[in-house]
Amino acid sequence: MKQGMRVVETRAAASRGLDHDSCHSMTTDPTSPAPTVDGRAWTTPPTGPDRSFAPPPPPPPPVGSQRPTPRNATEVLDEMTEVIAGAHGALLASVDGFALAQNETMPNEASHAAMLAAAVGLAHQLVGMGGGEQLRQLVVDHDGGLLLLWPIGETRVLAMLTESRVDQTRLRRFVRSRASLLADHR
């Protein structure tokens, strides 16, 4: 099942003619720490001695597609829940607590976007407690599964409900590959 899913992901990615940055995300070592999911970071590769941001290898050749390239945030969220095994729903919110897009499978409560924004807002502050500077991910591990949160650029937050056994490494990679589509490009 998982292998099949991976093929779908790879095909979808290849069919889009992955840009420079999203290709990079697909080739990142899954054992490395998750970098910040920043929409701008994926469209503007930093320069300098940091080898973790070295220019990525060229994208793999297109091998056809089983699903269309997502064109907007809602389609990206739908793709995520379909491609990632164990993902139930996704919601994109503004950092000030407004829902911007969500799956039909996601509970539709007006307060959710505000709660997600508040949680990420606090988590940004908690980063300093550990001596860090940037929030990468926030995980709410509960008896019903996981709620995973990622800051997307400076102005958005992505939330995903999953089963506990979800492949988080793969999920993170997928989110990073789609971050530029979810980010606010004002």
Partner: peptide
């Protein structure tokens, strides 16, 4: 001050540029 200020969006951005989201 521990602040959770973020940029505002929508109509609220016409009132001010940042707002507190948690505390």
């Amino acid at each position: 001050v521990v602040s959770t200020d973020v940029v505002t969006s929508g109509d609220e951005s016409d009132v001010k540029a940042h707002t507190t989201v948690a505390m």
